[in-house]
Design a protein around this nucleic acid. Structure first.
Lengths: 221, 221
DNA sequence: TGATGCTTTACGGGAACCCGTAAAAATCAG
DNA sequence: CTGATTTTTACGGGTTCCCGTAAAGCATCA
């Protein structure tokens, strides 16, 4: 099993239980920090001392407080880490359940495991560590399930651009110009109207307000 | 210090760390459950056995899974509990940070302490237990702070009703009828327009879509 | 090449919404 | 009760949005 692990997690209670979970796996050399900047320092220092960490277990969202930080969230921490230690195994431990976000973590940021904070998260974390140790990636089944669920409507690039612009306060009649400026293809006012209608009809909405809230909650905009 | 405590928390990792926190306070007789229904059973049985719990520490949101539950969230658990054991001390331990929701817990549901899952939550939980043991209520300072912060705009009953109706898909021109049906006072179309304009102007928005997302995120609708 | 089907665009009438003004109603002080 | 102030309502013209239809663009295939 892994020997040297770093935990980056701002919630004290989560941090404590991750420590305990690692103890159960007889991993004694686990360090824990509450800020991304600290995590990055520890990772750097470990490399300098020629005793690098094998695994980083990190949360995604870190709350701001009065101590100013350079790195403010898990994704930026992962990006920064990749630059100095590309082979570090990364397991993300977060409440995030939106498939689009989790997919990105694997596909764009190349993480090795994802454990969602939920009913059996401590057990899942153990499974994840074992899987990653055996050079497999770990993604719990319920996430894959919700990927399927989510396919109630397949949002295209245009769809997301349109709703984003609306949410930013753009007038509908001005959206064609914005789309043309960004070289997004169907850009006429008719097309914008058509896409909006299709989205609303598919999702059972009648007003743009509902659509905006829906997209915002899903993390699409 | 308290002797007999029940923990209702669906996240295994949070549950573990609450247990550990109670151990630190040398509270050995702490039971823990992962479902509200179980919590309610344990509370009932303890009363039947004439050895009732002194404190309930509970989360607010419990995730659904394949086991169907009667009580599905912390607030309903608190309500049910109040009916069978009104003097039970209740400490809520949740990620919820919206002041309107937390205020309700104290004012409507009469809880004794609130600890937000955050950077020093384990320490705060200890403080809360000590405070409640000394017959004081416990509400961390950062919540009170955010109550003040939130006062960028004071939403009235009408405001919330209007945005809710919009979010439910009601046409703006039909909202006056809805308001009259509910006996909400300024109900003319002009008033609706005026309130909407005031809200948007104060919050720096130009479109209803932005307002709807804002209110939804704040838990106002 | 030209016929065919699909997507995108253009346009126009009507509905909903925005905004300013003014009347009506409610509130309040003296 | 009266007059002044504020709040609420009523109304109208201009803009934006909705929606249906028709034309234009574009790829496919005989």
């Amino acid at each position: 099993m892994f020997k040297k692990i770093l935990i980056a997690e701002d919630h004290q209670s989560s941090n404590i239980s991750v420590q305990k979970t690692l103890q159960d796996l007889t991993i004694d050399n686990a360090d824990y920090v509450y800020y991304c900047d600290h995590a990055f320092s520890w990772l750097k220092n470990a490399i300098r001392d020629q005793d690098p960490y094998e695994v980083l277990i990190t949360d995604l969202s870190f709350e701001e407080d009065n101590t100013i930080q350079q790195i403010t969230n898990g994704i930026d921490l992962i990006k920064a880490t990749r630059a100095i230690q590309p082979d570090l195994k990364v397991i993300v431990f977060s409440v995030e359940s939106r498939p689009s976000i989790i997919d990105d973590l694997f596909k764009v940021h190349g993480i090795d495991g994802y454990v969602r904070k939920a009913r059996h998260d401590a057990d899942h974390l153990k499974e994840a560590l074992r899987a990653v140790y055996n050079h497999k990636s770990y993604q719990p089944s319920d996430v894959k399930q919700s990927i399927r669920d989510k396919n109630s409507y397949e949002f295209t690039t245009v769809d997301i651009a349109i709703v984003s612009l609306l949410y930013q306060g753009e007038l509908q009649k001005n959206i064609p110009q914005c789309l043309k400026r960004r070289n997004i293809k169907p850009s006429s006012l008719s097309s914008v109207e058509k896409r909006l209608n299709l989205m609303k009809e598919t999702l059972g909405f009648t007003k743009n307000e509902q659509l905006a809230v829906y997209c915002k909650e899903k993390g699409l905009i």
